[in-house]
């Protein structure tokens, strides 16, 4: 029945019309906009928190480990990264919202919980990205800096990190893309994202085909925009590379 071309197309037209009706006349678009806003807030703020945490963890991890303090800190970082990479983000959300918050006796809007959890989660991944980026810089660069009498910190900031950023930025863009896609699970703890908005529209007239298709399109457009931004940024960072 649903493979007969003409009939299906006719159905589809009707479905689009229904979707459009709900989208415009019953205020579906405001829900979509809120959902889009929440998705972006969670991903972007989450990544920002992740970058802060990741930078701290990565700088501890690359420190020389002669002394006791860096070793203890390093142990803690390994535990942190293992914890957040070892569990799915849905589980982390549920645990944060239904276990940690009640235990602490705190009350927090679910959106904030999502931002925090995604921040902590991406911190673990970003730390690995940054550590990898720093490790991929030729150790000779550090040696050369130290050999002219610059300290470890100065060489790191002036020589190693600027070169590492070139390796880190594109991967960080990928992390943002991954985060945007992962935010589609925040409805587990009751935060309103794109999924919530479109299932509202779908439930309104028991018609899910078009809403979910539009949802997929929005995600794709978002991701492609970010990929484009990353590419532009990457190109401008390649200044010191060979250009022939």
């Amino acid at each position: 029945m649903f493979l007969k071309g003409k009939n299906t197309m006719g159905n589809f037209d009707r479905k689009v019309a229904k979707f459009w009706e709900t989208f415009i006349e019953y205020g579906g678009y405001t829900k979509v906009l809120t959902g889009l806003q929440n998705t972006l807030i969670i991903a972007v703020v989450g990544l920002a928190i992740g970058i802060v945490i990741g930078t701290v963890i990565a700088s501890i991890e690359v420190l020389p480990k002669y002394k006791r303090l860096p070793r203890i800190l390093n142990g803690f970082c390994t535990f942190y990264v293992g914890l957040f990479r070892g569990t799915p983000v849905v589980v982390q959300l549920l645990v944060a919202y239904y276990v940690v918050l009640p235990l602490l006796g705190m009350n927090m809007p679910s959106l904030n919980v999502c931002i925090l959890v995604f921040g902590l989660n991406s911190g673990a991944y970003v730390s690995e990205i940054m550590r990898g980026g720093i490790m991929s810089v030729d150790p000779g660069q550090m040696e050369a800096g130290r050999a002219v009498g610059l300290s470890y910190g100065v060489t790191m900031m002036k020589i190693v990190v600027p070169q590492a950023i070139k390796n880190i930025l594109p991967t960080l863009g990928n992390e943002l893309i991954a985060l945007i896609k992962e935010t589609s699970v925040v409805s587990f703890v009751g935060a309103a994202d794109l999924y919530v908005a479109f299932s509202y529209i779908g439930t309104n007239n028991y018609e899910f085909m078009v809403p979910y298709l539009v949802m997929a399109l929005i995600y794709i457009v978002l991701v492609m925009l970010i990929a484009l931004m990353v590419k532009t940024m990457e190109r401008s960072l390649r200044k010191s590379d060979r250009r022939n």
């Binding site: 050999a147 002219v148 020589i159 010191s240």
Partner: peptide
């Protein structure tokens, strides 16, 4: 050590020029 290294230049086999400068 940094103070003393300033008085000891070093030249490496792989040159190790700073790529970002």
């Amino acid at each position: 050590i940094n103070v003393h290294r300033r008085h000891m230049g070093m030249v490496f086999q792989q040159f190790n020029l700073f790529n970002n400068k």
